[in-house]
Design a protein around this nucleic acid. Structure first.
Lengths: 144, 144
DNA sequence: AATTTATTATTGATATATCAACAATAAATT
DNA sequence: AATTTATTGTTGATATATCAATAATAAATT
């Protein structure tokens, strides 16, 4: 065997942590029949933060491919949680905005999301959280 | 806006770090025309570690769905990097093993993979690495 | 031993990830 | 102003993620 145990690799543990956390949240979503995926939620949340945003910006902020954003927006538009608003004098971009329904939806479920975030950091001191954040940012910087 | 900036969420940063790192490695794979994906590499590496392994175990160790493993193994089998070896007196499982070609492949590219791992931790003290590992394991524990 | 239960791998359906090619069009250059 | 270049969003192709249903069969129970 070359290269040791993959469980010892930090990048593997980072990915594992992400997968476990996403699975937990998705299970909770499904348990209450939320009807959306984690990825869909993240888009809704980003749109809510910025009120209106282009698909390009959405792709950048979510670190997803524009093609993937197109398809997820189609789904969320069908669910009537958001809309693509045409921009006057700009026929290349749209303003992506939440519908009233979408705003209500995000507000309604934000509490649960916050509980998931809190749960993930149970037993952490605020110093540990900041340390973890900085170490993650350092890796991001290293890999750019 | 409810719930603050998503960039402040640790789980978001963990996922972001994973995505950035995977993109880096995949770009390097593509640059040298390696012909496989990161996920395919991870399976090859796990199989190499265990010499022979069932698909169920492979799914557990990689934190992937058995259905997804089936499909990726099909691809890797077509590339002749591994094979599904029947187990005597057990017609439900296979021993997944690397072919000679697969073993050579993993050996050949392990150096590059180690460089990626090293690059991700540039500027880290060994204490920081261990701290990061423990914080990640703590989150994994919290979210189980 | 026969029946029931649990496990393993596969397939289908739907969502996401990525790249490449493309159309539309905005922005920059000449 | 006309042409060139760059940007934005979409679509197609292929890989991955997940769940549900299924077939085969191993393991447990009666």
């Amino acid at each position: 065997m070359v290269g040791g145990n993959i469980e010892d690799v930090i990048l593997f543990q980072i990915d594992k942590t992400s997968k476990i956390s996403k699975k937990y949240s998705q299970k909770e979503f499904d348990r209450i029949n939320l009807g959306i995926t984690i990825e869909q939620w993240i888009l809704l949340k980003i749109i809510e933060e910025f009120e209106h945003i282009s698909q390009k910006e959405l792709a950048d902020k979510s670190l997803r491919d524009p093609a993937s954003i197109t398809r997820t927006l189609d789904i969320l538009e069908k669910k009537q949680l958001l809309l693509r608003e045409p921009i006057p004098n700009n026929r290349r971009q749209y303003n992506i905005k939440l519908t009233t329904e979408g705003i209500t939806f995000v507000k309604k479920h934000m509490k649960m999301i916050k509980e998931h975030r809190k749960k993930s950091l149970e037993g952490f001191s605020s110093e540990e959280v900041e340390l973890l954040r900085n170490l993650l940012l350092k890796i991001q910087h290293n890999m750019r």
